[in-house]
Amino acid sequence: MGEYVYAESWQRLLDQAGQPGQSGAMSLASAGPAGPAGSGASGELKHSAKPWSDAAGAAHSLQTDTATVKAKLTSAHTGAQAGTAGLASMAALTSVLASWEKRLTAVHTECGALEPALRETAWAQGEVDAGVKSALAQYSGKR
């Protein structure tokens, strides 16, 4: 992993955190006090790639399902116009079919765009975490 270049304001904070006589521990003000070891209430902000990966999986499933449903819907309407020329109900049915096809296509397209973005977010968070951990380790003496 390459060396990170930080904005001047961040670099100042990192330099201050590494000064002798100052605690290197950081926590979120909203995280509250650290709990006893092993209690799970460490006061650290934690996250996981799992929710992002799960959301990507859901987007993929929804994309697949909308394609399947659209194909079935279109197939079910095949031949419906035969012998019904001029009926108002056929015009309404055709309009409803077009509307559903448009909606299903939009959902399919949106999910197709979301899935890779969600997977990239899960991956990128892991990379950023590793980079920040490595960069902060040089200030705390841990590697």
Rank of each mutant, 00 (worst) to 15 (best):
Q63W: 04
S9R: 11
G21W: 01
S75R: 12
K50Q: 07
A92Y: 01
A98M: 00
V132R: 07
A122H: 04
Y4H: 03
V132N: 06
Q81T: 14
A29I: 06
L136R: 14
V96C: 00
A85F: 11
A98N: 11
Y139V: 09
A7G: 11
A31K: 11
A25L: 13
K72H: 11
T84V: 10
S75Q: 13
E44V: 06
G2M: 03
A67F: 07
D65N: 14
G57Q: 06
G18D: 05
T121F: 02
A106S: 13
G83S: 13
A80I: 14
L136Q: 12
Q63C: 09
Y139D: 09
A49Q: 10
E8T: 14
A55V: 00
A113L: 08
S75I: 02
P33F: 04
A106Y: 04
L14R: 13
L62W: 06
G86P: 03
K102I: 01
S99R: 08
G131D: 05
Q16L: 15
K72S: 14
A113Y: 05
T64H: 12
W10D: 15
A130Y: 03
K72P: 01
A76I: 04
S140A: 14
S27A: 15
A76T: 05
S9H: 11
W10Q: 10
V107D: 04
E115N: 06
G43I: 04
A82K: 10
E120W: 01
R119W: 00
T66R: 04
D15Y: 03
T74N: 13
A56S: 09
S30V: 15
L118G: 08
A113G: 14
S23Q: 09
T121I: 03
R103T: 07
S48R: 10
A41V: 03
Q81A: 15
A137P: 12
A49I: 01
D65C: 03
Y6I: 03
A91P: 00
M90E: 07
A71F: 02
